[in-house]
Design a protein around this nucleic acid. Structure first.
Length: 230
DNA sequence: TGGGTCAAGCTGAGAA
DNA sequence: TTCTCAGCTTGACCCA
C-alpha cells in the first residue's frame, strides 16, 4: 500500500471526546448507588428465564423497551418474583454458544432490530426481548470500538508516512539548494527579465553573477535602469 | 488477585 | 410521550 492508497481510503475517524451528553454529568455514581440500594436489580439469569419465561414474555410484549416507565414496570414485576438472588443480587447471564451464534448471525444480517425482529429473535433464543436489545446495543458498541482501534492504527501509519515524506522532502530541498545556480536561490521579486532578450536580470542577480558561474550576465532592472535595454 | 470481558444498569438526545 | 440509541459505568465471572 503506497501513500496515496493510504490517504485515499476515505476513512473517517472520530476520536475526540464524546461531546454528546451521554456522559452522565448530572448523574453521579453516588446517585446510582443510592438508587440501587433503594431499587432491586433488574438482572435476570438463565435459570430465571426458564423459570418465568412466559410471564416475562407477557411483560415485554407490553413494554418491549426500557424507557423509564417500562424499566420501573419491569423492576416492579421483577421484584415481585425475585427472591433467590436477594434484593440486590445480580447474577451474570452467560449466553450459550448457540445463543451467541444465532445473535451473531442475526447481527451480520442487520445491526439493528425492529420490534418484530426483536420479539422473534427473543422467542427463538428463549430470552427476553430486552436481553436481545441489550446484546445488540453492546455488540454495536464493540464493533464501533474495534473500528476505532483500526482507524487509530491507520492514522498512526498515515502519520508516520507523512513524517517520513516530510523529512525526505526537506532533505531534497536542501540538496537542491546546494546544487542549483545561486541566482535561482534569490527571491523572485529581485529577479526581472529583459523584455528584449528575455534574460534574467536584477540588482541582486548582478551581485550573484559576479560570484556565480553565469558567464555572460545580461541584467535588466526596470526600476534602477528603466530606459536601458540590452 | 488483578485485569479483561460482557450483560445490564443509567442518562440524555433525538425521532416519531 | 414513548421508544431507541449511544455512551458511560457497574458488577459478575473467568483466567493467567
Amino acid at each position: 500500500m503506497d501513500f496515496d492508497d493510504l490517504c485515499n481510503t476515505g476513512l473517517v475517524l472520530g476520536l475526540g471526546n464524546s461531546s454528546s451528553s451521554s456522559s452522565p454529568k448530572n448523574h453521579t455514581k453516588k446517585d446510582d448507588h443510592v438508587r440501587k440500594a433503594a431499587e432491586p436489580s433488574l438482572t435476570l439469569n438463565l435459570s430465571d428465564v426458564k423459570k418465568d419465561d412466559s410471564d416475562l414474555y407477557r411483560q415485554d410484549s407490553a413494554a418491549s423497551s426500557f424507557s423509564t416507565v417500562s424499566v420501573k414496570r419491569e423492576r416492579e414485576v421483577r421484584s415481585e418474583d425475585e427472591d433467590e438472588d436477594g434484593p440486590n443480587g445480580r447474577k451474570k447471564l452467560r449466553l450459550t454458544k448457540a445463543q451467541s451464534a444465532l445473535l451473531e448471525e442475526s447481527f451480520k444480517q442487520h445491526s439493528t432490530l425492529n420490534p418484530k425482529q426483536k420479539q422473534d429473535l427473543a422467542r427463538e433464543l428463549k430470552l427476553r426481548p430486552r436481553q436481545v436489545e441489550v446484546w445488540f446495543q453492546n455488540r454495536r458498541a464493540r464493533t464501533k470500538l474495534k473500528q476505532t482501534e483500526v482507524d487509530c492504527e491507520f492514522l498512526k501509519k498515515c502519520c508516520e508516512t507523512l513524517t517520513d515524506e516530510n523529512r525526505r522532502l526537506h532533505k531534497e530541498l536542501q540538496e537542491l539548494k546546494l546544487a542549483q545556480p545561486l541566482y535561482m536561490q534569490l527571491p523572485a521579486a529581485t529577479l526581472t527579465m529583459c523584455p528584449s532578450c528575455e534574460r534574467i536580470g536584477g540588482a541582486a542577480a548582478d551581485n550573484a553573477a559576479k560570484t556565480s558561474f553565469v558567464t555572460k550576465p545580461h541584467f535588466y532592472n526596470p526600476f534602477t535602469n528603466p530606459s536601458a535595454a540590452c
